[in-house]
Amino acid sequence: MSTPVVHDPTTLPSDDNVNPYTFCVELKGGQWFLQKGKMIAYYGRIDFNGIGHGRLDRLLRTSFHSPLHASDWVVAEGSGKMLLADRAFDVNSFDLDEGNLTIRSGNLLAYQPSLALKQSIVPGFVTLIGTGKFVAASNGPVVFMEPPIRVDPQALVGWADCPSPCHHYDHGYMTGVMGGVRTLTGLGGVSGEEHQFEFVGAGTVLLQSTESLLPEAATGAPPQQPGVPGGHGSGHSSGHGGGHGGGQGQHGSTPRLPGQLGDLQRRFGL
């Protein structure tokens, strides 16, 4: 107890946890995708390059499909051992075998390029598809649950193979004027648990044992396109058509033309 374990490159595990809060990745000339700023130390020669690096184009073509998160991710390349950690949260690795898993974008630390990262249609989440290993952080150990289940939005880390994540609102949330006033103002008899995510079907749901989240990066808003849920940023949840003709719901100064390429701010995640 009193003498701490001293690690050196030979005793550090290969692609495994050093302790519950630190994960060690071994690179042997290969590549890993890594969220920015999660590397705490490394031995050996490792280069970190941003997603926009020209040499990585071929890799990105197969394994990275989220322009909105591009500014958050880097590719680590070289040989050596690298330690990953995030705000002293629990860190775990998971293996996917020809599978898919959707995870809150802030909770994903790193993944092997044999997996493909795609933006989930649920805002703020990303989906990994393929075979390989990834590393995720959670505040408290991860709990695995089987659907059908309803979970608190803040405790949700991710889910695998579930075909139908949807919102569930308690009956009282929607009925009556007073119910509406209560939930909007928070006055009187609100439990704070009127809204859940509901999962049905076969699969696994991953939960963390706390409701405090990793702070969301400002990036990750879905593109503003017709039919994309949550595509309007904050506030305007439109849905009812409203005053805007055509149902496109643009409220910015310049309407986006169909087929217009992503503009520079979006490319940089601003």
Binding site: V5, D8, A41, Y43
Partner: peptide, 17 residues
């Protein structure tokens, strides 16, 4: 969070954030 102790020897330098 618990600190990780890493040894540095002449053969292997270490880079730290």
């Amino acid at each position: 969070g618990p600190a990780t102790v890493l040894r540095v020897a002449p053969g292997y330098p270490l880079c730290v954030d």
